[in-house]
Structure formats: structure tokens, C-alpha cells
Write a protein that binds this DNA or RNA. Sequence first.
DNA 1: TGCCAGGCCTTCC
DNA 2: GGAAGGCATGGC
Length: 281
Amino acid sequence: MDELKIKVDCFNLKYTLECGQCFRWKNIDDYYVGVIKDRVIKIRQDGDYIYVRSNEEKDLEKVVKDYFELEKDYKSIEERISVVDEYVKKALKNTSGMRHLKQDFFETIISYIISANNNIPRISKSVNEISRKYGKKIEFDEEEYYLFPTPEQLKDVTVDDYRACGVGFRDKYIFNTVKRINNKEIDLLKMQEMDTQSLRKELLSLMGIGPKVADCILLFSCQRQEVFPIDVWVERVMKKLYFNDKDVSKKEILKYASDKFRDDAGIIQQHLFYNIRENLI
DNA sequence: TGCCAGGCCTTCC
DNA sequence: GGAAGGCATGGC
């Protein structure tokens, strides 16, 4: 099977897949393997080109470009945020080319419900377990992979079944959300068409979704780059850089970030998050 | 052993 | 509207 070659600009595959926004990509040697939509993807980067292989070649270029936001002008965005201040400039220099993914809405909702008061390796483990048990199996290069299940595929899954996937106390939140989707109480397609504040409000109505999780979903699946999710790491880095390590509330941090970073708050947040976690800043 | 993790829910003011 | 406590689980 042929390898699809795509020219990229202002794109770093490693930073994009390892910055903590997604949970199912696996790094093997010089490539990453993961699932996008209905297919398994193996992807690697060499300079200004990415090379892609998949079990499904139909519309492959479009699927990849869409998921990685390759048509979006990140160069202009980075030029714009590099002049915000010296901290942002430094962080950006360390992780330039990191992009926000356009991940599946349902998968992102469930994954980030699982993320609450959790750590990334364990979130990955749980999301993979749910996929393995309830998602469609795909074979590629003589190995087995699993798509993330649809709400329909989860309709008979019980609270205890989720618990067995290692999600802990979040079991009932997932169960409740899946049930409401399958009962047509909420419409995932309509939600994605909403303006940001309406969509945020709708997300907050779901069990297990608070302000931080809602903002992550908005950022990592819905391309609303003005939101500013504050987790323990972002709280830490913001206090360190802008509040002299004083004890300030999340509300104050959010106001400061919104005023200063404005429409690029989400992009800057991700660079700061990655930089503080990797001890780069 | 105790603390921490991409926090949220419930309860109580 | 805000503060405090509880919550599953695995890694350190």
C-alpha cells in the first residue's frame, strides 16, 4: 500500500500528539499509530512532510487534514501570540507547531469526563479499554485496533461495566451521559453547530462535566480556541508566571487570561500546559 | 504511608 | 454564590 505524503507548515506531530489533548495515539519507533473516524492511521513526520498509511485509503488526505487542522494558518497565529509577552514567546519557541486536534465529539466528551481528577496514563488506559470492549475491531498490518464505540454500541453497557474499565467514580457520569444521548435528550450534531456559550452551557448540563472539562471539549474537538481550561497544571504555571505564586482563585486566573490572551487563550493555554508539564518553563 | 492526578458533585452555609 | 468534603485508582 502506498504511503500518502503531505506537505505541512508550522506543524509538529510529536507536540501535537503528546501535549495531553488526546489519549489513544501510541508512539512506535519513528511513527504514531491511532484511530481517526473509521480507520487506523500510521503517521510519521520528516521535516516539512508527513507520511500516512491506513487500512482505508478513501478520502484519506481529507480525513488527515481535517483532524490535524492542516488547512488552518497556524503560522499567523504563532506570529500573533509570540508578541504577547516573554513567557508566551519562550513557551511557544519550545513547542512551536503544536496544533489543536479536531477530535470526535462523542469520544472527547467521554474521555474528558474520565479525565477529572485523574492522570493521563490512566485516562488512556480506560479509554482504550472501553474501545477494546465495545468498539469496532479493525485489522491493519496484522494487528488489531478498535474504534471508539458509538453511543448506540454503548446502549446496554451498565455502570458496573464502566467501572470494570477502570474509570472509578466516573462510571455513573458516563452511563448517564450515554443514556441521555441515546434517549435523544441531547443532540450531538446540533450541539456542534451552536455558538460557544450555548454549547458550553449544554455541555455543563451533562453529569461529570464542569467548567474545565467543558472547555477541554470545546478546545480539543470543537475548535473554540478562545476558551481557557484551568487544570492543576495551568493553575500552577499561571500563578508562577503572572501572580508571583500567590494564592489566587481560578476565577481571577481566568479573567487575567481572557483579558491578556483574548481569542488565542486556548492556544496559549496549551503551550503553557505542555511547557510546565515537561519542565520547560 | 500519604500525596497527586487535565475536577465534579453534593451538602452546607 | 462560595467553601468544604468525598470520591476510585494507580504511580511515586
